[in-house]
């Protein structure tokens, strides 16, 4: 019997994971990712964590970090995890835009999608590739979190259980944060010809949408609510929340993902292969 939607999506998702580990491009990406994160861990996170440790000992007066607007870092029980959270909120969405830009476009241009669409529905292909990209990013999040936990535990072995709890909270929140970015790239990839075009369009859509909504809301303030549709809209508020509290804003990226995936699916169904 022919597999159904879920089985097809799962197989496509697995194949995307295989792409990361079996292709030269995938390995190059992994090595670059590891190098960038090792640099971030060894310098900004380690030094910032040392500084935070000193800040926590200040009992009176205005903290240096609060003065510069980074007071929320003090809410984290393990400084390394707090600094990681702030870095991850900037780096992972950017990586997401770049790595998930080619979900279907180059395969469509090459004609490879035709071979696939003879065997699976467009829905399976679209959602399977999206799930595959999310799986790859989840893996990268866990890899970087694991090394951050190791760094914290290296400093104080008693922090292990606290660090693991923080790591889980960060992982869940980051995965939710990345959903709309990946969905936006899935939608753009379904209609554009190359990953480069998709990345450029993502930046344009991102900045112009924010600009247009801001301009319109100055005439009609009610339109300001539309900003909720811009991926990353909740980021500044999110950076002020620590650990599991950050889930309070999870409804925003989840809503954005549903809207963007619906648009992407609509585009995919109408696209010539």
């Amino acid at each position: 019997m022919s597999p159904g939607f879920l089985q097809h999506s799962l197989l496509i998702c697995q194949f995307e994971l295989k792409r990361l580990f079996s292709s030269r491009k995938g390995w190059l990406y992994l090595i670059t990712f590891a190098l960038v994160w090792s640099f971030i861990l060894l310098y900004p996170i380690r030094f910032a964590a040392d500084m935070l440790g000193q800040e926590k000992n200040i009992t009176s007066g205005i903290s240096f970090l609060e003065f510069f607007g980074f007071g929320s870092l003090l809410n984290w029980q393990i400084p390394e995890m707090g600094v990681y959270w702030h870095f991850a909120l900037i780096i992972f969405p950017l990586l997401s835009v770049m790595t998930s830009a080619d979900q279907t476009c180059s395969d469509r241009e090459r004609g490879t999608l035709r071979f696939l669409c003879l065997r699976v529905s467009r829905d399976s292909l679209f959602f399977g590739r999206f799930a595959g990209m999310m799986l790859v990013q989840t893996l990268l999040i866990f890899m970087s979190l694991f090394s951050t936990v190791a760094l914290a535990v290296y400093r104080d072995v008693n922090l292990l259980s606290l660090a693991l709890n923080s790591a889980m909270a960060i992982a869940v929140n980051l995965i939710i944060v990345l959903l709309p970015f990946t969905a936006m790239m899935a939608a753009l990839s379904a209609t554009l010809k190359s990953a480069r075009q998709a990345t450029v369009w993502a930046i344009l859509v991102w900045s112009f949408l924010a600009g247009i909504i801001s301009a319109l809301s100055s005439y009609l303030p009610a339109l300001d609510a539309l900003k909720i549709l811009i991926p990353g809209y909740q980021m500044s508020a999110l950076s002020q929340l620590a650990q599991w509290q950050a889930l309070q804003l999870a409804y925003i990226p989840l809503l954005q993902s549903v809207v963007l995936l619906s648009i992407g699916r609509w585009v995919m169904h109408r696209q010539n292969l």
Binding site: K18, R19, S22, S23, R24, K25, G26, D107, R110, G111, T112, R114, F115
Partner: peptide
């Protein structure tokens, strides 16, 4: 056999 369709060069 679609016209001008090629396999993925990565695999």
């Amino acid at each position: 056999l679609p016209q001008d369709a090629r396999l993925d060069p990565a695999f």
